[in-house]
Design a protein around this nucleic acid. Sequence first.
DNA 1: CAGTGGTCTAGACCACGGG
DNA 2: CCGTGGTCTAGACCACTGC
Lengths: 248, 248
Amino acid sequence: MAAQQARYRQVVAELRRTIAEDGYGSGGRLPSEKSLAEQFDVSRGTVRQALAVLRSDGVVTSRRGTRRVVLDNPPLQDFAELTNFARWARSLGEHPGGIVIHQEQRTATLEEQQYLRLAPGDEVLWVLRLRMLSGRPVMMERTAYPKSVGELVAQMPADADSVTDLLAAQGLLFADADHTIDLVLAGTQDAEHLGCAVGGPLLRERRRSTDPAGVPVEWSDDRYLPGTVAFSVHNSLGSSALTRRRTS
Amino acid sequence: MAAQQARYRQVVAELRRTIAEDGYGSGGRLPSEKSLAEQFDVSRGTVRQALAVLRSDGVVTSRRGTRRVVLDNPPLQDFAELTNFARWARSLGEHPGGIVIHQEQRTATLEEQQYLRLAPGDEVLWVLRLRMLSGRPVMMERTAYPKSVGELVAQMPADADSVTDLLAAQGLLFADADHTIDLVLAGTQDAEHLGCAVGGPLLRERRRSTDPAGVPVEWSDDRYLPGTVAFSVHNSLGSSALTRRRTS
DNA sequence: CAGTGGTCTAGACCACGGG
DNA sequence: CCGTGGTCTAGACCACTGC
């Protein structure tokens, strides 16, 4: 079982379960915070902490004056499933695969310096990987790791299913990530390994991940074959995680 | 001035300002909650409420045992800027434009029934719009509104800059939205109006928006020309707004 | 007007990080 | 070990919704 001690997290889990079982009806209304507090035998503050989680996950609404309403809730993944290709693949019932095609240690480019918060002259480990779902190529991944992280990555087998898991085993956790999603055309390298035409469209996700202390640990450019993935986001008046940008 | 009464929101604003001015240094650490509470003359609870906002916006980290760290914070838009094409365009210094190409009231398709939570036989207003930035076509928008909303939309001029603003003026607010981002190939309709090749790649954002009560008010399929936009998301261990899905 | 969620307080104890 | 953020409580008042 996953670590789950905080009382409010238990409340989150119980509420999620009830909602999933349609306990309040689709588009139905939750009991008041007061009655939930009595039901779970916690204070209203704890109930509100739990409800804040459901709110930010887009499971329920919240408005002064009325009870909370259950939204048609999309199945949500946790953070690990997003940052971790292998775990995601398995959750789909597919077999994850990955091959390191090229790997080198070199001085960070300007872009890498910026995203990984490095000084000029600092080194990075740059890795080019092909990712597969049950043997089918789906994604080209170009990742730059700062030197300290790179030293761990470099020791991994070239066909490691999950770099993230191996890093976690070393105590290196991913806590935050910024993602930018856009469209690019396949270069010769992409085309060769993904088996698409040069100039063919790819869905790109660029990602900068940081550890719990806020130190950047990864800067990646992932390019997916069309028709293999889509990205979903929920946001609301209170918390807008999503942003539309002009392509730079 | 924007409405801003809640004390914790003022604290958010002040902290944001200080951070923006590099008051704590890049990658620097915030004062403790206790000292912030004294500084702002509020309780620790209020400070924590403010910090939670900055946390979920990806501005600062949070870990037990250490002070919060300032992340390299990407400039964030508010919710309105994402849901509102015209407002977004203006924030880029561009002139927003939109033309209704086709519009019809008809019975909802199965898909529309599902996303807008309608009953079989319910009607929707379906609108096909071309969106422009300073005269250049950038996006094809196909939106279905439930009948009640559609009646408001239908009264709007065909070249209205912002449907959202006009709806807001009628008291209809957008409070929550689910977005799915993927890649599609242009159909003949897309190609004709966007001026791209049939079969050319487009970045698609599908969106379902709901009002504060959780009632769906819009279901849209927006297709952007390559190179015009990118979407950015922040997420973290605690709140995962982003999801990677297999294309369905 | 009654009920609900939003805000705020003051205090308490715990778990973790780092010296 | 100390300082920090994480969790939880009990109570208060306010702003809004909807009857």
